[in-house]
């Protein structure tokens, strides 16, 4: 069971999808207006991630390589639909708050990325734990960002007011612009770690700044293959083709 523990640690800390890999930024920005919404979105994504990883890993020998992306998408979309119906029935308020972002979990590049780069290549049990680890990492990150925004924007966390009365809420943090500012601060901190880490001679290649260079990975190829060249601005190199 060591492998399982290692996958959990990897997803939660070492390759945290939000804080380290900077994947799936759309839902991260959109639903983190409060800690509760962040937690709900994270948990929903985590369940989809774990289940789709498990099923894709079980089916990996049956899915032909050429049609794997459409196959992944159908599997992921099925789980998203199941989850959406469950939320509608059990937690209608959360479902209403998250709205269109629940079905949009289908195009969250964390899920397709893990399917492509881990689950399709690995046995079921590690894949399941990889999904759980990544999902928990995502949930943790969304809850943190949601808590910070809720605290600054309303002075409360999870609806409990914890700031002193003299504190004036900075309302803009729960509105759309606040999301951009929080993410800007986060990426700046990441850059800072990267720069100081590189000076100290550490390996910082794992830390990515999401959409800065290689966001085009989020295209239909999943997160690992496609490369959009910013220098020439016109060239898309399919890494897979080059390898063959």
């Amino acid at each position: 069971m060591n492998k399982a523990g290692e996958r959990l640690y990897n997803g939660l800390i070492k390759e945290n999808p939000t804080f380290v890999l900077m994947l799936g930024m759309c839902p991260t920005l959109a639903v983190t207006t409060s800690a509760m919404n962040g937690l709900g979105m994270g948990a929903t994504t985590a369940v989809v991630l774990a289940m789709s990883n498990l099923i894709i890993s079980l089916l990996r020998k049956l899915i032909p390589g050429k049609v794997r992306i459409p196959a992944f998408i159908v599997i992921i979309a099925s789980f998203v639909t199941v989850l959406q119906l469950l939320l509608e029935a059990l937690l209608p308020e959360l479902n209403k708050a998250l709205g269109v972002y629940i079905p949009l979990i289908v195009v969250n590049c964390i899920i397709l990325g893990r399917a492509e780069s881990y689950a399709y290549l690995s046995p079921p049990i590690p894949s399941l734990f990889d999904g759980i680890g990544m999902g928990l990492g995502f949930t943790f990150a969304l809850t943190c960002i949601g808590a910070v925004r809720e605290l600054l924007g309303t002075g409360a966390v999870f609806g409990y007011s914890i700031m002193p009365h003299s504190f004036t809420p900075i309302g803009i943090f729960v509105l759309a612009p606040g999301a951009f500012f929080v993410l800007a601060a986060l990426t700046a901190f990441q850059n800072f770690l990267k720069i100081t880490g590189a000076k100290a001679g550490k390996d910082v290649s794992k830390i990515q700044s999401g959409c800065s260079e290689d966001c085009m990975n989020c295209g239909e190829k999943g997160c690992s293959r496609r490369f959009y060249d910013n220098e020439t601005n016109m060239e898309i190199i399919d890494l897979e083709k080059e390898e063959n």
């Binding site: 759309a176 612009p177 993410l183 800007a184 990426t187 700046a188 901190f189 850059n191 999401g210 800065s212």
Partner: peptide, 21 residues
């Protein structure tokens, strides 16, 4: 140094979002 690249773009986008409000 730390704000070069993506953080600066995100700040710009944030200011644009305020304008669009």
């Amino acid at each position: 140094e730390s704000f070069k690249g993506m953080p600066a773009v995100l700040l710009t986008a944030g200011l644009m979002a305020i304008a669009f409000c």
